[in-house]
């Protein structure tokens, strides 16, 4: 399993979009890391998320790779991950933070 943490703002992502994102993440990790996604979906309560000290509309999607990822591979993977978010949610690229962590 690839651990995926998704931090999203309450009320921003409808249930059907969440389901599509979960399916998309699972497909993404299965294709690229040979393992399904273990998704920790966390909604930040209204009034509890801030970006630049203002109410946040940002999502943060963080994956933990099982093995170190070459930077030449990481960049297209991050682009695909962020594109999944913008395509499914309609948000802008400025509202998505993607992270692919190497193992500690």
């Amino acid at each position: 399993m690839i651990q995926c943490t998704c931090l999203v703002q309450e009320g921003q992502i409808p249930a059907d979009t969440e389901a599509a994102l979960r399916a998309g993440l699972d497909d993404f990790t299965t294709r690229n890391f040979n393992a399904p996604a273990a998704i920790n979906w966390i909604e930040i309560d209204k009034g509890s998320g801030f970006t630049a000290a203002k109410p946040s509309t940002s999502s943060i999607v963080s994956l933990a790779a099982h093995a170190p990822v070459e930077q030449s591979a990481r960049v297209p993977l991050l682009k695909e991950l962020c594109a999944l978010w913008t395509e499914e949610t309609g948000c802008s690229l400025d509202e998505v933070v993607g992270v692919i962590n190497d193992p500690a």
């Binding site: 931090l7 966390i42 930040i44 309560d45 509890s48 998320g49 801030f50 970006t51 630049a52 000290a53 946040s56 940002s58 943060i60 933070v97």
Partner: peptide, 20 residues
Amino acid sequence: TRIHCAVTDAPPIFVHAFFR
């Protein structure tokens, strides 16, 4: 946001603060 930017010179738009 103010502290992080003052200490690091990062722009405020980079700073996310989420409470749970």
